[in-house]
């Protein structure tokens, strides 16, 4: 049964308690922040910040709106990172989301280049290439597994307004759709759910009262075509190696037998 997180942007006050709870549970360090004239901090996701709230100030026709978006791993069903991860450090949890076992990470960084949401972060040493990836683990990292313990992710647990909820994906989706109808009835004509079908379905669903573009979400995200090419060339690699090895074995056996028999004829 797939599980998901539902983020209801209309209930979010951007208190950022989720950011703090995420760091607390996952043992991430605080990052020095700068006053840039906004409450939004830190500037971006990092190896230490797996979840952050984005603040957007929208002014149109004399009205002003302050929109908040949750930024973290979207836990795609068709996940580019899982496709290209060589070691299996990134994998689909039984509950559908993209779990991560950091102990297995090789530091190759392919996930960084194949994520349609630009989520994975690394502090790689440029010369040696050493360093491991970090991203939201859905609080299911080995040793820090809240899901296995029957608990909800730390961000959901701490959310004071109910903007974040955790549960069966189908249930959350139904609830979100019902709330879309409520919002539309209240005059929010652009109310919609984001994440139902994006990259075959996200395990972080968004309830928005405006378009995904306005909220800074990727419209029509795609797993890179090169990831599909991996699905072709990896089996091709096995096949070529197998056929060539078998062919050579056969070739050498036949050649040996024929040359030996010819030499014996000469005698």
């Amino acid at each position: 049964m797939a599980k998901a997180i539902l983020y209801d942007a209309t209930k979010c006050t951007a208190c950022r308690a989720c950011q703090v709870a995420c760091k607390n549970w996952n043992e991430r360090e605080a990052v020095d922040t700068i006053n840039r004239g906004t409450y939004e901090n830190p500037l971006d996701l990092s190896t230490q910040t797996w979840l952050k709230m984005e603040f957007r100030e929208i002014g149109d026709n004399g009205t002003f709106r302050w929109l908040f978006t949750r930024r973290a791993c979207m836990h795609c069903t068709d996940a580019g990172c899982v496709k290209v991860c060589p070691t299996g450090a990134l994998y689909h949890h039984d509950e559908g989301f993209v779990a991560y076992d950091k102990a297995k990470c090789s530091g190759c960084g392919y996930c960084v280049e194949f994520c349609p949401y630009s989520v994975p972060r690394m502090d790689t040493n440029r010369a040696s290439g050493l360093g491991r990836m970090d991203k939201c683990t859905f609080c299911a990292a080995p040793g820090l597994d809240r899901i296995d313990a029957g608990d909800e992710p730390a961000c959901v647990k701490t959310c004071p307004t109910g903007a974040l909820t955790f549960g069966a994906r189908a249930t959350l989706l139904a609830a979100a759709k019902a709330r879309v109808e409520d919002l539309k009835a209240q005059g929010h004509s652009d109310a919609q759910v984001y994440g139902e079908n994006e990259v075959s379905g996200l395990h972080v669903l968004y309830l928005l009262d405006d378009s995904p573009e306005t909220y800074g979400l990727v419209v029509n995200p795609k797993v890179p075509a090169a990831a599909a090419a991996h699905d072709v060339i990896k089996p091709l690699g096995y096949a070529v190696a197998g056929v060539v090895a078998l062919g050579l074995l056969l070739n050498i056996m036949v050649a040996r037998a024929r040359i030996i028999s010819r030499e014996e004829e000469k005698k």
Partner: peptide, 15 residues
């Protein structure tokens, strides 16, 4: 090969 074919993937763990 460790990074290319998943059979050998575990050998790449740790980097």
């Amino acid at each position: 090969l460790f990074l290319f074919l998943s059979w050998f993937g575990p050998a790449a763990e740790g980097g």
